[in-house]
Design a protein around this nucleic acid. Structure first.
Length: 558
RNA sequence: GUCCGGUUCGUCUAGGGGUUAGGACACCGCCCUUUCACGGCGGCAACACGGGUUCAAAUCCCGUACCGGAUACCA
């Protein structure tokens, strides 16, 4: 029997990270067992369901890469079938008409009202005391003739238990006395959740229901419906919940954007990194390891590895440094700096495009990469994840600024310090545009503090110009062979700068960091020798001579 | 109230009768270094509590506390 699982969100809001994890676990289980992963939108709550919400769920699933294997089922399309089944149960005497007038909605929270009522009843309530439970057919007909509305309730037997073996929580038993005669069909003819779920799961041929632990008690009710219908229930597995740092419910109303999936996409997260993070929230392969590719997750996933206790999604409100779970952020950074460059590049391209920093010259033009030296980090990552296919990219010769080779080299050089895709267009802006800002703190620390640099750095530009001038040649031309003309590469730049530093009787760091600030606008980045090279001679000269940063006159806070 | 679950560093977790209770993130320190990261080394930090069972309990049993879920003509 092939496994068929479903992810069945109700479109009443945004796509919650908890839902995303449920989708992930269903997806992993399906792939692990070579089964089918289906999607059903539970849009039967007309009042709360929105198309926008459905769209955010669909977009979120697409971003995560969980495409359903069959057509999407919209539960609202099946309402007639659900009604017919309720009527059938009624006719078979397995359900009954309840003419009790519909209760008024409590003014406060529904949950509190339920709790309040239950407390008042002191647990003395008899779940079988409905006066219409054993009403005669004659009386029912009379009431119907009078136009009295009625709900249809399942007739739960007086004694007995429902039991099932949960894939995560083990044997679950519940006495009938704990389960009321649940409503199948509202008095307005609207089918209710438990009925709809059971009917649809049967129709979709679902073999395993993997969902949040908040459905544990619903499962007993659903099993009752399966029995009434004479259908063997599927296997169930319930997932622990994801909680807020205070161990309370994680909701958008209380916690804001951190709980919404689209936030992560928009914040420059990589789907593979976020999937990896989500997988480790409530599941573990019982090994000391954090980074897993999708294929590895699929291969290692099992219901046995799922925990029974809730997990906290750890973040600090009002602290921009920790606005989301630190581990999620770390994992994203880990992916950015170690994933195969060829996988990263398309994402960077998309980011630069949306920031209007992309240029067609960065497209590959068919030429092979310049000399390549795989980095050890990349090798380690490949070894750990069995990912291959990474064009290592340490150029030995200077590259023509603005070409594909240059682009690849630049991305590889700057990605080590980045956490999200957004960083490529913000912190990395100076590599792609002349229009970048100067970080006041960097200016204060590296420029204002050393006034002599105002003379020295343009002087350094002159020195560069004298030494490397001939190197500014047209793209694609053959390098000049004259021995006195030096290529603008790391080795030669270092020689020139060291001599310059000695002449001035200052420390190398003073010159380097001053140049760094002028060239990139910030105080952090790759080795300055690399920065000089990828910024290129022409832009280096211009920026070293520019007075913009000096004139920006910050009041040196920090 | 009742029913059902849960409880190992701040967080995610490994371990399920004998461990110096392990790893990751975060935090702190040192090294590397032209900056910041990365990396390396090190540090801080946990078995909720009380009873049993046992030669031996974080691990098994019972109880308590606390946390969570459910208890709807919501999904």
């Amino acid at each position: 029997m092939t496994v068929r699982v479903r992810f069945a969100p109700s479109p009443t809001g945004y796509f919650h990270i908890g839902s995303a994890r449920t989708a992930l676990f269903n997806y992993l289980y399906a792939r692990h067992t070579a089964g089918k992963f289906l999607l059903r939108i539970e849009d039967t709550d007309l009042a709360r369901s929105t198309e926008e919400s459905t769209r955010s769920i669909l977009e979120g699933l697409e971003w995560l890469g969980f495409a359903p294997d069959e057509e999407i089922v919209f539960q609202s399309n099946n309402a007639d079938k659900h009604r017919a089944i309720a009527v059938k149960l009624l006719e078979e005497g397995k359900a009954y008409r309840d003419f009790t007038p519909k209760a008024e909605k409590a003014e406060g929270s529904v949950k509190d009202a339920i709790k309040e009522r239950a407390r008042a009843e002191q647990g003395e309530k008899n779940m079988r005391d409905n006066p219409f439970r054993d009403i005669t057919e004659v009386e029912a007909e009379t009431r119907i003739a009078n136009g009295e509305p009625f709900a249809i309730r399942l007739k739960v037997a007086e004694t007995g238990t429902t039991a099932f073996e949960d894939g995560v929580y083990g044997l679950q038993e519940r006495d009938y006395a704990e389960t009321e005669d649940l409503v199948l069909l509202r008095s307005d003819g609207h089918p209710l959740y438990n009925l709809a779920v059971v009917c649809d799961d049967i129709e979709m041929g679902i073999t395993h229901v993997i969902r949040g632990q908040d459905h544990l008690t619903n499962t007993h009710k659903q099993i009752l419906i399966y029995r009434a219908l004479g259908v063997e229930p599927p296997k169930f597995a319930h997932l622990p919940l994801i909680m807020a740092p205070n161990k309370g419910k994680l909701s958008k109303r209380k916690h804001g954007e951190v709980v919404s999936m689209t936030t992560y996409r928009d914040a420059g997260f990589l789907a593979e990194a976020f999937r990896n993070f989500l997988a480790l929230l409530g599941w573990s392969a019982s090994e000391e390891r954090e980074i897993y590719s999708l294929d590895e997750l699929i291969q290692k996933f099992s219901l046995e590895g799922i925990h029974r206790s809730n997990a906290v999604f750890n973040f600090k409100e009002n602290d921009p440094r920790h606005w989301t779970d630190d581990k999620a952020m770390w994992m994203n950074a880990e992916y950015i700096r170690t994933m195969p460059l060829s996988d990263l590049l398309p994402h960077v391209k998309a980011e630069l495009k949306s920031a209007k920093l992309w240029r067609e010259e960065y497209e590959p033009d068919g030429r092979a990469l310049v000399a390549t030296v795989p980095s050890t980090e990349a090798q380690a990552f490949e070894a750990s994840t069995e990912m291959a296919d990474r064009p290592g990219t340490i150029a030995l010769e200077p590259l023509d600024v603005g070409t594909y080779d240059w682009f690849v080299r630049t991305i590889d050089a700057i990605r080590a310090r980045f956490f999200t895709l957004k960083d490529f267009s913000s912190q990395g802006r100076a590599y792609f545009s002349e229009d970048f800002d100067f970080d006041p703190a960097a200016v204060a620390k590296n420029l204002t503090k050393f006034p002599e640099l105002r003379e020295w750095l343009p002087e350094l530009a002159d020195r560069f110009e004298a030494e490397f001038q001939a190197e500014t040649r047209p793209v694609g031309s053959v390098p000049l062979r004259e021995p006195e003309v030096l290529p603008f590469n790391e080795h030669n730049i270092e020689t020139v700068i060291k001599a310059f530093t000695e002449e001035k009787g200052t420390k190398l760091g003073v010159i380097m960091n001053g140049a760094r600030t002028l060239l990139t606008g910030v105080a952090v980045g790759p080795s300055m020798l690399t920065v000089f090279e990828i910024i290129g001679l022409e832009r280096t000269l211009m920026r070293l001579r520019s007075q913009v940063a000096w004139n920006s006159e910050v009041d040196g806070s920090t």
